[in-house]
Amino acid sequence: MVQKYADSTKPDLEEGTNVAATHARLTDASAAAEREKVLRENGMEPVSLWVVLGCFAVVLIAGGVFFKGGNYFNNAAFVAANYQQGEEPGGDTGPVLEPAFKAYMAKGKGLYAQKCAACHGGDGNGNPGFPPLTGSEYVVDNARVVTMIALNGVAGPIVVKGKTYNSNMAAQAVGLNEYELAGLITYIRNSWGNEGDVMSIEQAAEILADSDSRGGSQLSGDEAIEMIQDKLKAAPLSKEQLVDKKTGIIVDATEG
């Protein structure tokens, strides 16, 4: 066999190609690399109809999943028999919850701007003739006084932070419901440096009842001073307590 290639009378495959020399060169290279076939990817066989049908069937099934979607992936459909599930009919997600402080302040802010800011100032510092609410002893010490004043108004001289004011305030907070009233008072008692607590709906109800039993006439300065000592019976809300943003009622998220 060796003689065949070394025979100089036999022509090489191409001009200038010495097959024996080429092969000898390749003894250094990997024999495995030499015997490899060339990679070809130009197969142009037509795709079988079965492949197309198969893919079409897959798309149909997947499409069914997409379009049935949430109904198909509804846990309720695959719950085993006799399994008790509690579920709200109609899929109601429940009330929007917020910390009490945030909800009540938001409520009160709008009401303050509407009813009180004209006289007592947007920053609570009052105007000439109208007492300030910032640091006022009628506001800070006790929620009862400020609420009664808001509900009934005050007439005659009144001493606020050492200065005497002698004007007439009409009842401004009449017609507000308990949540709105509590919100307004909370806002007044927690803004501009005042630090109070959040008035609860029970407290608001208590004061409304007291105010109704009083008859609705304006307070005098002396009555107001007396009321400062009179604490409310009901308790205020804690600031982080979660309440329903719409109604101000406490919602215990651990229940239900």
Binding site: E36, R40, E41, G43, M44, P46, V47
Partner: peptide
Amino acid sequence: APKVTGRPVYSYSLA
């Protein structure tokens, strides 16, 4: 597959 068998890949468009 094409390297060891020496045949071209069946269908380029399918690939």
